[in-house]
């Protein structure tokens, strides 16, 4: 068991190292910048923000920028973590099956005595390499940085946020996986899943208080709120369960579709 996951996972180590170093560096930059930002603008920044359209504030998760927690929740977590890193997982997952089919490598894999379900699941499992690396390194860097600049964040809230974001990122990855099984070209699967997820991400905030608000229900970003976790200490466990169920359902859908698929 797990031979394919190990093989795929090993070849994700390099890419994972790059992404982790890049995002770790970004996180540190934000943390280190915050004191300068806070001390030069003071509380004026929130007054300035009040003049922004509500939808824009919501889209970027801006609640307050006067505290380290609020600053990180909007600047680092809402945009970089929930959107960019989310899309990174969708993008990686979208290539898992489609790229193998496109490059005619799937035949070789299917000729092995393994089930199609196992191929899909083990390939998906290889994404846990970057998922675990980012989930361990980023909060560590953020916490250490915040202590170093003397604006320490609550380590428990930080850990809880990252724990809750695991099912969130898995939903992004599983959307990519479904696209990867549906399309025979990796670029198509990637465009389709990134387009859908980006649309849902902004729809959730931009459609609030409109007749189309219901669309936001299917947006993963509705079920993870860094502001609530980091500033208010509210841990939405039910939302995390919703995300977990969605991720499992999407992976199951991908397995069912792949089992029925003619590989041509």
């Amino acid at each position: 068991m797990f031979e394919i996951a190990r093989f795929e996972g090993r070849h994700r180590v390099r890419g994972t190292a790059l992404v982790t170093v890049a995002l770790g560096g970004f996180s540190l930059l934000y943390v280190v910048l915050f004191p300068t930002f806070a001390e030069s603008l003071g509380t004026d920044i929130d007054e300035l923000l009040a003049a922004y359209p509500a939808a824009l504030q919501k889209a970027f998760g801006i609640q307050t920028l006067t505290s380290m927690e609020g600053f990180l929740a909007s600047e680092l977590y809402t945009f970089f973590w929930m959107l960019i890193i989310g899309l990174y997982f969708a993008y990686s997952a979208a290539a898992l099956v489609a790229a193998e089919v496109e490059r005619e490598r799937m035949d070789m894999l299917l000729s092995l005595p393994v089930s199609r379900a196992r191929i899909v699941l083990e390939k998906f499992a290889s994404l846990f390499v970057p998922l675990l690396a980012l989930t361990v390194v980023v909060p560590t860097v953020v916490y250490a940085g915040s202590v170093a600049v003397d604006y320490p964040v609550d380590p428990v809230a930080l850990v809880v946020f990252h724990a809750l974001s695991v099912p969130y990122l898995l939903v992004f990855a599983s959307v990519g996986l479904v696209a990867s099984v549906v399309f025979d070209r990796a670029s198509l699967a990637q465009r389709a899943s990134l387009g859908l997820l980006t649309g849902l991400f902004f729809a959730e905030s931009l459609l609030t208080d409109t007749d189309y608000e219901v669309v936001g229900v299917v947006s993963p970003s509705r079920y993870l709120d860094p502001n609530a976790v980091l500033i208010d200490g509210e841990y939405a466990v039910v939302d995390a369960v919703v995300l977990t169920v969605a991720a499992v359902a999407l992976v199951a859908l991908a397995v069912v579709l792949f089992r029925r698929k003619d590989i041509e």
Partner: peptide
């Protein structure tokens, strides 16, 4: 054992 017409590997 199987050998496809155009074997492709990673």
């Amino acid at each position: 054992g199987f050998l496809p017409s155009n074997p492709a590997f990673d």
